[in-house]
Simulated assay, not measured.
Amino acid sequence: EKEKKKRYRNDPTKIQNWQYDEKNDVFTDYQGIEFHFKNYSIRHDQYGQERKFKVYQAVDYFEDPVRQALAQTPSGRQRQVSINNNWLYFKNYARVQLQSDEGKKIYGQRKIEVEPVFADVKAHLRFTRFSVRGLDKVNIEVGLVLMAMNMIKWAREKAH
């Protein structure tokens, strides 16, 4: 949803809005600084999942001190950007699926099936925040709230 907004599409700081030369594998930012492929990088997130990146580094502009300053970080190192092509592929795949007719229909059902449950919990039970900390305690509290909602539904059915 955020990527559809004009402000996001026109934001020159977003890498998606930079020019990309596929033949030479070079990104050019909004200030004209070129980023050439440097190396591959593998990182592990907090869950131990492996993520692969392509690292691009800004070109040295020794002859032009103004452009050289734009190509460096405030600490004096060359600027770098990391691109996760696997993440971009799946993000684009999800975008295509959501924009299809079937995807729009399924996403539209979310407003009918899921959202009212949370609205009922907030409105009828006045449950707007947890009173405990810790995942186990929160799971128990959610279970109690959902059990209360089911009991309310059961009582309504019995009354009719």
Results as ranks from 00 to 15, higher is better:
Glu1Thr: 06
Glu3Thr: 01
Glu3Pro: 00
Glu3Gly: 00
Lys4Thr: 09
Lys5Trp: 06
Arg9Trp: 03
Asp11Asn: 13
Pro12Leu: 05
Gln16Met: 03
Trp18Arg: 05
Trp18Cys: 07
Tyr20Cys: 06
Asp21Glu: 12
Asp25Thr: 00
Asp29Leu: 09
Tyr30Ala: 15
Gln31Ala: 14
Gln31Val: 04
His36Ser: 14
Tyr40Met: 13
Tyr40Val: 07
Ile42Trp: 03
Ile42Phe: 11
Tyr47His: 08
Glu50Asn: 07
Arg51Gln: 14
Lys52Asp: 04
Val55Asn: 02
Tyr56Trp: 11
Pro65His: 02
Arg67Ile: 03
Gln68Leu: 01
Leu70Cys: 02
Thr73Cys: 00
Ser75Lys: 13
Ser75Tyr: 04
Arg77Phe: 05
Asn84Trp: 06
Asn85His: 11
Asn85Asp: 13
Asn86Ala: 04
Trp87Pro: 00
Tyr89Ala: 11
Tyr93Ile: 02
Arg95Ile: 05
Gln97Trp: 14
Glu102Lys: 10
Glu102Arg: 13
Glu102Gly: 00
Ile106Leu: 12
Lys111Thr: 10
Ile112Asp: 10
Glu113Thr: 03
Phe118Asp: 03
Asp120Gly: 07
Val121Cys: 09
Ala123Glu: 14
Ser131Tyr: 12
Val132Thr: 13
Arg133Tyr: 11
Gly134Lys: 05
Asn139Val: 07
Asn139Phe: 07
Ile140Phe: 14
Glu141His: 10
Leu144Tyr: 14
Val145Met: 11
Met147Phe: 14
Ala148Leu: 06
Met149Ser: 13
Asn150Phe: 13
Met151Val: 10
Met151Trp: 15
Trp154Asp: 08
Trp154Val: 04
Glu157Ala: 14
Glu157Leu: 15
Ala159Trp: 11
Ala159Val: 11
His160Gln: 12
